[in-house]
Design a protein around this nucleic acid. Structure first.
Length: 567
RNA sequence: UGUCCGAUGGUGUAACUGGCAACACGUCUGAUUUUGGUUCAGAAGAGUCCAGGUUCGAGCCCUGGUCGGACAACCA
């Protein structure tokens, strides 16, 4: 047994993902003096989502493991798509996740001067040229993956002319799209990325940082590896779709690198989640078409949405850890993400009782006007969370579906003639059901057994099959409770019947607003507190609730239990 | 029709330089329990895409296929 344990532990230590293996190999070979320096390089054109979280945890985690550093770099080379709103939100989200780039905050736009110089150098080396053709013409000449491209008529311009034209592009002499700087690589390459890719394009657009200083902007490929190089990055980790770009990444580096140091690009598979769309374009569409209430809508897979939904940074980091990193395409069941937050909240969340859909319950043998104070444990798994006081009285509220007049098969809760325990209070027995003219249940009458008070230590001489939650009608605090479900009905929302787009898979019932009641302690609940409501899942106080209006968001419905209960 | 990448229980990730395919989640049983939660104990579930080859021995190496993905923005 003991032997197995130590074996497992040593196995865990040596169980490295493929990037860690690469890093250890590099370290053992003394590459880059054994330094490990990564970067997280988002384009500020949208909010970060759970897929980015995977990348953030990977990059910062790797650096942490090998005593390295991680930079935050905004890849802001396309001014028309980018905005400061996004850079602010990205910084917040990375911080919230618990990572610190310290003083290493960079922008690709910081390097525009250097990039321009390097472009000139490459022109001077005869490895780049100005093409006067339109985007359409260039595209037509590019060929197809199976057919080689044709060379541009401008490919063999003189270096002097190229230099002059490039300078004039920079000076703003030409309109958008009039000319483009292209790398002279190989129009017949089987790798499309190498067929004379664009390096610089003209965009007379205001940049969120450089303002109107520039009217030409470098392409991703010409900016990224160079930025890595400038920052001393050793491991440039990106997603699989950039795999075919790697030869270009290296080609550009070949043109400028002198000396031994150079960054290496490594690709990993991006995260896919069931019942979730992850593309920024689609998330933007949901926001713009008001199909959700903004980027931080708790139904969104954005970091800020998850945060409002009640996710903790730890739970997201643990999730990233659990799913690992590899090169094959994957689809993770969203239930695993939900599991990670349940696991974390189970340890941290204070338990509190709530009633979403109340029905009045009268304890007929309880004195009118009497109020008892009862002790309730805040967190059975954490003694230090302490206790709170609950008020017990003759008139109570219980959850409507905790009672059934004619229960089918396995029903463990309140039913006529049977006993259940009111959590932290007494065992009660249902004696009568009061209905209105329409036949709807309006009140349930019960008797309580004084001997069964919780916490007295007196052993119960009989078995009670269920424990239900309750609130004193007099003391309950009204609260708005938002029940969020999955945003999409379809396990893979990107796949639709032909002709329809992903929005046809939206779940019409993904948000339900309920006017329920909660315990008095929650009246002074503070922002971002996490609570576990008995039987109804985890809730957190919504960011925009106020003392006048308590709002809760449900984190995770205890689906499995509910499914069983409703069988 | 080209190039590159990938393929291991339901899902994801391991398996060192070839050595009895492991871990987590999920599922199912059972136990505890003042939440049908939690916790605990146990079980089932793959023989590693296919066909050859090398080898005493192949998930791992070689050859050929199959299937899936990426690449034809002046996006990142």
């Amino acid at each position: 047994m003991n032997k197995n344990q130590t074996e497992d532990e040593s196995k865990k230590k040596t169980s490295l993902n493929f990037i860690e293996q690469l890093i250890e190999k590099n370290i053992s070979e003394g590459k880059n003096e054994g330094r490990v320096h990564t970067r997280f390089p988002p384009e500020p054109n949208g909010y970060l989502h759970i897929g980015h979280a995977k990348s953030i945890c990977l990059n910062f985690g790797l650096a942490n493991r090998y005593n390295g550093l991680t930079n935050l770099r905004f890849d802001d080379t396309n001014p028309v798509k980018e905005d400061v709103e996004y850079v602010d939100s990205i910084m917040n989200d990375v911080k919230w996740l618990g990572f610190d780039w310290e003083d290493r905050l960079y922008y690709a736009s910081d390097y525009f001067d250097q990039l321009f110089e390097w472009a000139v150098k490459i022109i001077k080396a005869g490895k780049a040229y100005i093409d006067d053709q339109s985007a359409d013409e260039i595209s037509a000449q590019r060929g197809t993956p199976s057919k080689p491209g044709m060379e541009s008529p401008f490919r063999n311009r003189s270096i002097e002319e190229n230099l002059d034209l490039f300078q004039r592009m920079k000076n703003g002499e030409f309109p958008d799209g009039a000319r483009v700087l292209r790398a002279k690589v190989d129009m017949a390459s089987p790798n499309m990325q190498l067929r004379d890719p664009a390096m610089y394009r003209i965009k007379h657009a205001h940049h969120h940082r450089t303002g109107d200083k520039w009217c030409i902007y470098p392409m991703y490929d010409f900016a990224h590896g160079q930025s890595d190089f400038i920052e001393g990055i050793t491991n440039s980790i990106c997603t699989l779709e950039f795999e075919v770009h790697r030869p270009l990444y290296d080609w550009y580096l070949d043109q400028i690198v002198e000396g031994n140091y150079r960054p290496v690009q490594t690709e990993f598979a991006r995260l896919n989640l069931t019942y979730t769309v992850m593309s920024k374009r689609k998330l933007l569409q949901l926001v713009e078409e008001k199909l959700v209430n903004g980027w931080d809508d708790p139904r969104m897979p954005t970091i800020t949405g998850l945060r409002r939904r009640g996710y903790t940074p730890e739970s997201i980091r643990n999730f990233a850890d659990t799913i690992g990193v590899a090169k094959r395409d994957n689809v993770i069941d969203v239930a695993l993400l939900e599991h990670s937050v349940k696991e974390d909240l189970n340890k941290k969340a204070n338990r509190v009782m709530a009633v979403l859909d109340p029905i009045k319950l009268i304890i007929t043998n309880y004195p009118e006007g009497k109020v008892e104070e009862l002790d309730a444990t805040n967190n059975p798994e954490d003694e230090s969370a302490g206790k709170r006081t609950m008020y017990f009285s003759r008139e109570l509220l219980i959850e409507r579906d905790d009672f059934m007049e004619n229960p089918p098969g396995k029903f463990f809760r309140l039913t006529p003639g049977k006993e259940v325990r009111l959590r932290y209070a007494y065992v009660i027995k249902c004696t009568e059901v009061i209905k209105n003219n329409a036949g709807e249940i309006t009140e349930i009458h019960c008797t309580y057994d004084q001997e069964t008070k919780s916490g007295t230590g007196i052993p119960l001489n009989r078995k009670v099959k269920g424990t239900i939650h309750w609130l004193s009608a007099l003391h309950a605090i009204p609260a708005e409770i938002r029940l969020y479900d999955r945003l999409f009905i379809n396990e893979n929302p990107d796949i639709t019947d032909e002709g329809k787009d992903f929005k046809s898979n939206l779940n019409p019932d993904s948000l339900k607003v309920v006017n329920g009641f909660v315990e008095p302690v929650l009246a002074d609940a503070f922002h971002e507190s996490k609570y576990q409501f008995e039987r109804n899942g985890y809730f957190c106080v919504d960011l925009d609730s106020s003392p006048e209006k308590l709002v809760f968001n449900r984190t995770v419905a205890l689906r499995d239990s509910w499914a069983k209960m409703n069988k």
